[in-house]
């Protein structure tokens, strides 16, 4: 097993379900954000839950599954468009075991489970990323792209590179779980 990643206990808030959220992250509209549990939000991340869909009642803007990681300096914000003449932001759904690398900007509509997104990527508006897909570092995914399951995307604009092995699901699951256990507080 790899060495633990330490963080200072003062910086992170841990919830009952094991989510670890940095105090240095900017979380707008927290009442509209759902974290599945055991999800880590690193420092400098910006999550925009305030850009909600208009209409009555409670609106979920961003839902993250379990064992997710939002890297340092990441920006996660819902996409917008006009539909039948009405302007709206649309909710974003992220599955379980999703890792998003540092300084990546995500405006996707849906991200499946077991997805790994690299560093410095730009994921355009209304992108749909299916299960077990991976996106290499520095990829620019144009708006409205659909990334199929078990595929690796890279480049600018992001293009299909290769198919991933069927073991990807188990691998990513193990990786994300291990990362969560490695992410340990350090008292000092």
């Amino acid at each position: 097993m790899e060495p633990p990643v330490y963080y200072s206990r003062a910086e992170f808030i841990e919830t009952d379900t094991g989510n670890k959220v940095s105090r240095r992250a900017t979380i707008a509209g927290p009442q509209n954000i759902i974290l599945g549990g055991k999800t880590i939000i690193s420092s400098g991340a910006i999550i925009r839950g305030d850009l909600r869909r208009t209409g009555p009642g409670h609106a979920v803007v961003i839902s993250l599954g379990r064992y997710c990681l939002v890297g340092e300096g990441c920006i996660v914000r819902p996409p917008y468009k006009t539909y039948r003449g009405n302007f709206n932001y649309y909710p974003m759904k992220i599955g379980d075991h999703v890792h998003i690398g540092t300084s990546t900007i995500v405006e996707a509509a849906t991200i499946g489970s077991h997805v790994v997104i690299g560093k410095n990527c730009v994921i355009g508006k209304f992108t749909i990323i299916k299960d077990c897909a991976q996106i290499a570092d520095n990829t620019i995914v144009p708006p409205n792209t659909v990334i199929p399951a078990l595929s690796l995307f890279a480049g600018s604009p992001g293009r299909f590179m290769e198919d991933l092995p069927e073991s990807t699901q188990e691998m990513v699951e193990a990786q994300t779980k291990q990362y969560y256990t490695r992410f340990q507080p350090l008292d000092r």
Binding site: D50, Y80, K81, T82, F87, N88
Partner: peptide
């Protein structure tokens, strides 16, 4: 231009509620 216009209008209404 219409999209931009509606976008600003939406934000003008929504942002003050949360920020």
């Amino acid at each position: 231009a219409d999209l931009r216009h509606k976008h600003t209008e939406y934000l003008r209404e929504m942002l003050p509620k949360f920020n």
